[in-house]
């Protein structure tokens, strides 16, 4: 469904290449998880897929989505594709919600304009969507974004994502800063999306998320993919020392810091 080949991202100002030659492909109806630390370039890959790289960055290579190359897309074509077929659940839900509007009006607005629901039956159309996400329309809906917890804000965005018929959803760090309970339910909701036939590209530092979503995964470090394959394969018999280190660093596995030598060996020389 989505094939990324030899994707490199270059920074014009700093003369750096934060992403170098990344290739992977996402199968329809499955999840693909990109795991890596902060600064590994995983978020940049997601931004390149969603076409919102910041101005100073340029992408090379190919990102094919249903035969269309997303790297070389005009603004007009972008507008037709994004938000309708591709949807991004951002890392900071705050940035995507209007702080001055009650959440119910924000969700309703999208359903009205994208789906064309009439104002009078918005309420009973939205009620099941909200209750599916363990939110109450009459209570949580009346609040403003600043009154919600991080997990709730994310669920509101999920509700909005259901308005668009997007088949492909990019999720950036769905578990960052959430406590254990909300983390479990956040991952659970992502699996629900998979069951509904959506395709997921999930960006995370949490290997547990990859395990629960299944499908395929890739481990990134310093702009390159160090290991990729099916989730079971990578997590149960990791070949690369970095992947092993990452698994060991999780609190459940003893929280052992990754060996500095392994990291040093992988760091690529700075490009002049």
């Amino acid at each position: 469904m989505l094939r990324v080949s030899k994707l490199s991202i270059r920074s014009v100002i700093k003369r750096k290449q934060p992403v170098r030659g990344v290739s992977f492909s996402v199968q329809k109806g499955k999840a693909f998880t990109l795991v890596g630390e902060t600064g590994s370039g995983k978020t940049l890959v997601a931004q390149a897929v969603c076409g919102n790289l910041s101005g100073e960055l340029t992408a090379d290579g190919k990102i094919e989505y249903k035969g269309v190359d997303l790297v070389r897309l005009s603004r007009r074509e972008k507008r037709r594709l994004y938000g309708k077929e591709l949807f991004l659940l951002p890392q900071e839900p705050d940035s995507a919600l209007d702080p001055t509007m009650r959440v119910i009006s924000q969700v309703a607005e999208v359903f009205r304009y994208v789906r064309g629901y009439a104002v009078k039956d918005l309420h009973h159309r939205l009620a099941p969507i909200f209750s599916d996400l363990d939110l109450s329309l009459s209570e949580a809906g009346r609040l403003y974004p600043c009154q919600l917890s991080g997990g709730m804000k994310q669920r509101i965005l999920l509700a909005i994502s259901l308005a668009v018929p997007a088949g492909f959803i990019v999720v950036d760090e769905p578990t960052k800063g959430l406590d254990k309970l909300s983390r479990t339910s956040a991952v659970h909701r992502l699996s629900n999306l998979l069951e509904k036939g959506k395709t997921l590209l999930c960006i995370t530092h949490d290997l547990g998320v990859a395990r629960e979503l299944g499908g395929h995964m890739a481990v990134m470090y310093d702009g390159c993919i160090v290991e990729s394959g099916s989730v079971n394969h990578v997590l149960n018999s990791p070949r690369h020392p970095y992947t092993r280190g990452l698994i060991g660093a999780a609190p459940e596995n003893g929280m052992i810091p990754i060996d500095e030598e392994v990291l040093a060996a992988m760091k690529q020389p700075e490009k002049k």
Binding site: V12, R15, G55, E56, T58, R75
Partner: peptide, 13 residues
């Protein structure tokens, strides 16, 4: 290395 500036960059400049 000369770089082609994107629309956004030009706008910013």
């Amino acid at each position: 290395m000369p770089q082609k500036l994107s629309d956004d960059q030009l706008e910013m400049a």
